[in-house]
């Protein structure tokens, strides 16, 4: 049995559009675990995970709508809190 508790995760496609999102998640989430699996990338962290618009914009050098993430999103776990600046997943 797994001992992991309260893992929030986000899975995205393994493609160019997703790369800056993956890098932004690595920058903004201490201790995030990134796993590359065929066709997809899974990022997990105990408690919560955040995607920040500002970090992605810095990486790609243009304005970025947080909802563009829908184009590469495969799956998530956690309660969603989304606004114009961030997309956050967390377990209470």
């Amino acid at each position: 049995m797994s001992n992991k508790k309260n893992t929030a995760f986000i899975i995205v496609q393994d493609n160019e559009d997703a790369r800056p999102i993956i890098e932004a998640i690595e920058q903004d989430n201490d201790g995030v675990i990134v796993q590359y699996q065929p066709g997809m990338v899974r990022m997990e962290r105990a408690g919560s995970l955040i995607v920040k618009r500002e970090t992605v914009e810095e990486l790609i050098g243009r304005e970025w709508d947080i909802q563009e993430m829908h184009l590469v999103l495969i799956s998530i776990a956690g309660n969603v809190d989304e606004d114009d600046d961030k997309f956050e997943l967390s377990w209470n």
Partner: peptide, 10 residues
């Protein structure tokens, strides 16, 4: 087990 566990704990 992991994901469902976190969900139902929440």
């Amino acid at each position: 087990v992991e994901n469902g566990g976190a969900l139902f704990e929440d």
